[in-house]
Structures are given as structure tokens and as C-alpha cells.
Design a protein around this nucleic acid. Structure first.
Length: 272
DNA sequence: TCCCAGGCTCTCT
DNA sequence: AGAGAGCATGGG
């Protein structure tokens, strides 16, 4: 467990290793975070939060100790020793470069359905527009939390019509979003089970949803089911792999494929 | 303006 | 089994 301090109006994580807010919240793994004057804000797990970093660490504003220990510590993957992983994969020179560049990235533990739905919306789409669609979806049927909205449950989304989803900008993805919501809501797919079953079963189950192929399934695995063996391959990764690793992913990276994917993705988007 | 986006489905060889 | 068109939409 990381060291933290209870402040008057929040929690400070004391000098957390390998945790950079900008890298973690703006590297394309989650779509509900934004930054203003150095303060990051967003909603996760139905909780609105604001964070910023100062010389002593990272401050979670207006957060209780119990919210921190029971939710945020897990959400930000604070238990995982990223330094150890980076040192292990740094036996490969190229991986060392990529990992050093994005050494402050942590894989968020997003809610399974939020990840699934978000990455269905992400297909053939750009990040600003993805964020807009998701925000409108949350406003339409997410639970209101003060001035902000939680990500809606699968049940809430399943109750919408395809036309309503088109109206908020989903386009041709509307029927995919609906199919996923229905399969999760009626129990055809149990996302919690997919956290534990074998990799192939989990992928095949996810891909039984209309509009879910290998990429969206892998993103759901990595970002929603905490399965770091998943290695989502989008256009950026494919390009980067061709350039940087023509012979495939180095052996030392295989146990941490998903985390390594984020290092390569972040490095490629900013340097290739 | 007009191109294109963290893909997938469907169709045609 | 591999390649290619089409898909809805609006941000840049």
C-alpha cells in the first residue's frame, strides 16, 4: 500500500512512484477525464473527483479516507509495482526508451461495462468525439451525482432505443452499443465472470457482441477486466510494432503485454 | 471545406 | 482466408 496523508479537504498520496496524472488520464485509456489549470477532474465508479499534483505528491480533493482506500487506490492501480515491471522490460533497449517516456502511466481499473461500452463507441472514431458521445450518454441516462453524471448501467442503456443512441451521435455504432447493453443487462454475458475465466473464453464471449472485434475485446480485457495479458492492436500499435519490433514483442514483455502496449502506444503517438 | 478517426461487418474473390 | 468497400458523425 502506498503512503498517504489525510488532509483537511482530501487525501494526498505521498510521492507515488510511476504516477503522472497527465500521462495516466490523457493517454487514451479513459474518456471521462479533463484538465483545467492543472486540475484534473472526472467521474469514475459514480464518484466525481478533482486531482492535482504538488511537490509532495498527488492530491485527491474532497475525498474521504474510506473512499480512497476502498475505491480510488484500486482505481489507480496503486498496488502494482510499475518500477519493477519497467526494470524487467528494460532489458530490451527499445522498450526501455518507450517505458521511460511513459513511466508515469498507470492502467486504470475502470468498470467493466463502462470500458466495454466506451471502446465500442471508440471504433472508427476520434478521441474528442468519443468523449462527446460518452458525455451525452451519461447525461441522458447516467445517475446524477451533484452536478455530474455517473456512467450509466447496462440496464439503463438497454432501455434506450437505437434512435435515441443515434441522436446523441453514436451513428452506426448505436446497434452495437444496444446489443452490448442488452447482453450484459439480461445476464447473457457476465462481465465479472470474464475477469477470472481463461483468456480465449473471455475474448470469444466479448466478441459474441455485435460490433465487438479483437481490438474492442482486448481493450475491454485490459481496461475493464484488469487483464494485463491483453495487447490491443490498433492502427498506432500496428504501425509502431512494424517499425520498432518487426520480430514481434520481446519475450520479457509478454507477462506485462497490456502495460507495455500503453507505453508503446503513448510513445508512438507522440514520437512516430 | 473535406478528410479522417484507438474497427467491424459484410461481400466478393 | 484475405482484401476492400461501406458505415454515421462532427472535430480539426
Amino acid at each position: 500500500m502506498v503512503e498517504y496523508e489525510v488532509l483537511q479537504n482530501g487525501i494526498r498520496i505521498n510521492n507515488p512512484p510511476n504516477f503522472d496524472l497527465a500521462q495516466t488520464l490523457d493517454c487514451g485509456q479513459a474518456f471521462r477525464w479533463s484538465q483545467n489549470d492543472g486540475v484534473w477532474s472526472g467521474v469514475a465508479g459514480g464518484r466525481y473527483i478533482e486531482l492535482y499534483s504538488d511537490e509532495n505528491g498527488i492530491v485527491l480533493k474532497n475525498t474521504t479516507e474510506s473512499d480512497f482506500t476502498t475505491f480510488w487506490a484500486d482505481y489507480f492501480d496503486l498496488e502494482r509495482d510499475y518500477g519493477k515491471i519497467i526494470s524487467e522490460i528494460s532489458t530490451d533497449k527499445t522498450l526501455k526508451t518507450a517505458a521511460s517516456y511513459g513511466s508515469g502511466i498507470r492502467i486504470l481499473h475502470q468498470e467493466p461495462y463502462e470500458a466495454l461500452c466506451s471502446f465500442i463507441i471508440s471504433q472508427n472514431n476520434n478521441i474528442p468525439r468519443i468523449k462527446g458521445i460518452i458525455e451525452r450518454l451519461c447525461r441522458k441516462c447516467g445517475e446524477k451525482k451533484g452536478e455530474h453524471f455517473a456512467f450509466p448501467s447496462a440496464e439503463k442503456v438497454a432501455a434506450l432505443s437505437e434512435q435515441e443512441l443515434r441522436d446523441i451521435g453514436c451513428g452506426f455504432r448505436a446497434r452495437y452499443v444496444l446489443d452490448a447493453a442488452k447482453k450484459v443487462a439480461d445476464g447473457t454475458i457476465d462481465l465479472e465472470c470474464l475477469k477470472k475465466c481463461d483468456t480465449k473464453t473471455a475474448l470469444d464471449t466479448l466478441m459474441s457482441i455485435k460490433g465487438v472485434g479483437p481490438k474492442v475485446a482486448d481493450c475491454t480485457m485490459l481496461f475493464g477486466l484488469n487483464r494485463i495479458e491483453a495487447f490491443p492492436q490498433d492502427v498506432w500499435i500496428k504501425r509502431a510494432m512494424k517499425n520498432l519490433f518487426p520480430n514481434g514483442l520481446p519475450e520479457c514483455a509478454v507477462p506485462y503485454a497490456g502495460i507495455v502496449q500503453q507505453y508503446i502506444f503513448y510513445y508512438a503517438r507522440n514520437n512516430l
